[in-house]
Lab assay of single mutants.
Amino acid sequence: ELSWTAEAEKMLGKVPFFVRKKVRKNTDNYAREIGEPVVTADVFRKAKEHLG
């Protein structure tokens, strides 16, 4: 699991709890794919757009 900024964690907190774990995993995987060592708010937004 990658490191997350406080802002990205806050955004994740707005995701319904029953899918939060999956969203975190998918976002981590997306960040790795694009070469990001940390999940930022920008990476979170891009993952959301990319993953739907």
Score class of each variant (00 low, 15 high):
residue 44 F to R: 01
residue 10 K to G: 10
residue 19 V to R: 12
residue 18 F to P: 14
residue 14 K to V: 07
residue 39 V to M: 02
residue 8 A to N: 00
residue 27 T to Q: 01
residue 32 R to N: 07
residue 52 G to Y: 09
residue 27 T to R: 02
residue 49 E to A: 12
residue 51 L to I: 10
residue 41 A to S: 07
residue 34 I to Y: 08
residue 2 L to F: 05
residue 33 E to K: 10
residue 48 K to R: 13
residue 12 L to I: 05
residue 37 P to S: 14
residue 29 N to Y: 08
residue 1 E to D: 11
residue 31 A to F: 01
residue 35 G to F: 05
residue 8 A to M: 00
residue 18 F to Q: 12
residue 45 R to Y: 07
residue 15 V to R: 03
residue 34 I to H: 15
residue 48 K to L: 14
residue 4 W to N: 01
residue 4 W to S: 01
residue 4 W to I: 00
residue 9 E to L: 15
residue 46 K to Q: 12
residue 28 D to S: 07
residue 31 A to P: 00
residue 35 G to W: 04
residue 32 R to V: 07
residue 8 A to S: 04
residue 34 I to F: 10
residue 48 K to D: 06
residue 30 Y to E: 01
residue 50 H to I: 09
residue 5 T to P: 01
residue 50 H to A: 14
residue 22 K to T: 12
residue 2 L to V: 09
residue 14 K to C: 06
residue 26 N to R: 12
residue 5 T to N: 05
residue 4 W to H: 01
residue 42 D to K: 07
residue 34 I to D: 03
residue 26 N to T: 09
residue 38 V to M: 11
residue 20 R to F: 03
residue 14 K to M: 12
residue 39 V to K: 00
residue 1 E to C: 09
residue 2 L to Q: 05
residue 21 K to Q: 15
residue 32 R to L: 08
residue 52 G to F: 09
residue 28 D to I: 08
residue 11 M to T: 02
residue 31 A to R: 01
residue 45 R to Q: 11
residue 34 I to K: 08
residue 31 A to D: 01
residue 22 K to Y: 13
residue 26 N to P: 01
residue 46 K to I: 05
residue 1 E to T: 12
residue 47 A to E: 02
residue 9 E to N: 06
residue 23 V to K: 02
residue 41 A to K: 07
residue 41 A to Y: 05
residue 37 P to C: 11
residue 42 D to A: 10
residue 20 R to K: 05
residue 18 F to S: 14
residue 26 N to G: 11
residue 11 M to R: 04
residue 47 A to P: 01
residue 6 A to L: 12
residue 39 V to Y: 00
residue 2 L to N: 05
residue 11 M to Q: 06
residue 18 F to G: 12
residue 36 E to C: 07
residue 25 K to C: 06
residue 19 V to I: 14
residue 50 H to S: 11
residue 10 K to R: 14
residue 13 G to V: 09
residue 5 T to F: 01
residue 45 R to C: 06
residue 25 K to R: 13
residue 27 T to D: 00
residue 24 R to M: 05
residue 29 N to C: 07
residue 20 R to P: 00
residue 13 G to I: 11
residue 34 I to S: 07
residue 14 K to A: 09
residue 37 P to Y: 13
residue 23 V to M: 09
residue 16 P to E: 05
residue 20 R to Y: 04
residue 25 K to G: 07
residue 12 L to M: 04
residue 19 V to D: 15
residue 36 E to W: 06
residue 35 G to N: 08
residue 17 F to G: 08
residue 14 K to F: 09
residue 10 K to C: 06
residue 30 Y to T: 02
residue 30 Y to G: 00
residue 47 A to F: 13
residue 33 E to P: 00
residue 50 H to K: 12
residue 3 S to V: 14
residue 17 F to W: 15
residue 37 P to N: 15
residue 3 S to R: 14
residue 36 E to L: 07
residue 17 F to Y: 11
residue 18 F to A: 13
residue 27 T to V: 15
residue 31 A to T: 03
residue 2 L to H: 05
residue 51 L to C: 08
residue 2 L to D: 03
residue 44 F to S: 01
residue 27 T to W: 03
residue 4 W to Q: 01
residue 21 K to P: 12
residue 44 F to T: 01
residue 38 V to H: 06
residue 17 F to P: 10
residue 10 K to P: 00
residue 2 L to R: 05
residue 37 P to L: 13
residue 49 E to D: 10
residue 39 V to Q: 00
residue 24 R to L: 04
residue 15 V to H: 07
residue 5 T to K: 02
residue 34 I to W: 10
residue 14 K to I: 06
residue 13 G to F: 13
residue 29 N to K: 13
residue 51 L to P: 06
residue 9 E to D: 05
residue 42 D to V: 07
residue 12 L to T: 00
residue 16 P to M: 04
residue 45 R to D: 06
residue 44 F to L: 05
residue 20 R to N: 02
